[in-house]
């Protein structure tokens, strides 16, 4: 896609300029939340997990905004699925933030310990390079800085102890689960109902029984995917604001993006 592409009304829009303003808006909105929501050392895990996840959401949103070539049905849903995951996590965590944020951290530390042990098992029968020794040491030190590795349990299930669907139901966002998380999972996990539509094309030769042939055809970028990401960013902020009770201006980046794409004359305002 060119930076200057005609929109539906025939007017040229500068996509890169618009996404640049959008990412700046996302940065401002994140900064505004963090400024209005200072850490509380009674429950620092809440600030670190929720704040980190909010920042992660901003990173995902900006990553998508910066990459127009992946605004396609083949690629964008991989990012959008991760964005949906973050949203449901935040919504569920904020229902019981003190307890659940500890649960979230513990699961992550356990996974890190498990990964470390897999590496150690793999190298046990051969000579270890200095780089590997340094990497394993750094990983153990990272775990130890939070909890002694030998005391850390490993949870082989999922971190919340329940399904994502139940998390969404509990957090009041089961529609988001049904209509965003699940459909985009098909692409993210390369499931049949994604690849059959996007990576197979039906042969029309009757002697070939209308079999499906693999294809990796290029797809035209569609700005719809950026709008979806922006909408989920606004939704994330809305839930965060509501559950934390902080009051800041609501989602100007999304509103501005919609305005600019709807009426390019607004772009310079």
């Amino acid at each position: 896609m060119d930076a200057d592409e005609d929109d539906a009304a025939g007017q040229a829009i500068d996509v890169l300029a618009i996404t640049g303003r959008f990412r700046a808006g996302v940065n401002l909105e994140l900064a505004a939340r963090l400024a209005a929501w200072p850490p509380d050392f009674n429950h620092i895990q809440v600030h670190e997990v929720i704040g980190g996840m909010l920042a992660r959401q901003a990173t995902l949103i900006k990553g998508l905004a910066d990459a127009p070539p992946i605004w396609t049905a083949n690629s964008a849903p991989v990012i959008l699925r991760a964005i949906a995951d973050v949203y449901i996590n935040i919504a569920w965590l904020l229902l019981k933030p003190q307890e659940r944020c500890l649960q979230f951290i513990s699961f992550g530390l356990g996974q890190s310990k498990l990964e470390l042990e897999h590496y150690r098992a793999e190298i046990s029968s051969r000579e270890v390079t200095p780089e590997e020794t340094a990497m394993l040491g750094a990983q153990e030190a990272w775990i130890d800085s939070q909890r002694a590795t030998f005391l850390q349990d490993v949870n082989l299930g999922n971190w919340s102890g329940t399904s994502v669907r139940k998390m969404a139901e509990e957090a009041g966002c089961v529609d988001f689960y049904n209509f965003v998380y699940t459909p985009f999972s098909a692409c993210a996990h390369s499931m049949w109902h994604h690849i059959a539509k996007y990576n197979l094309v039906t042969c029309s030769n009757p002697l070939h029984r209308h079999h499906r042939r693999p294809t990796s055809a290029a797809a035209d970028p569609d700005i719809h995917y950026l709008l979806l990401a922006a909408k989920y960013w606004a939704k994330t902020l809305g839930t965060f604001d509501e559950r934390t009770g902080i009051a800041v201006n609501r989602s100007a980046a999304y509103t501005q993006l919609v305005a600019e794409l709807t009426d390019p004359a607004d772009a310079d305002e």
Partner: peptide
């Protein structure tokens, strides 16, 4: 039968 079809005629697009 269907495998032979693949040998004697190329795939076609709609």
């Amino acid at each position: 039968f269907w495998n032979r079809g693949l040998e004697i005629a190329p795939c076609e697009d709609y």
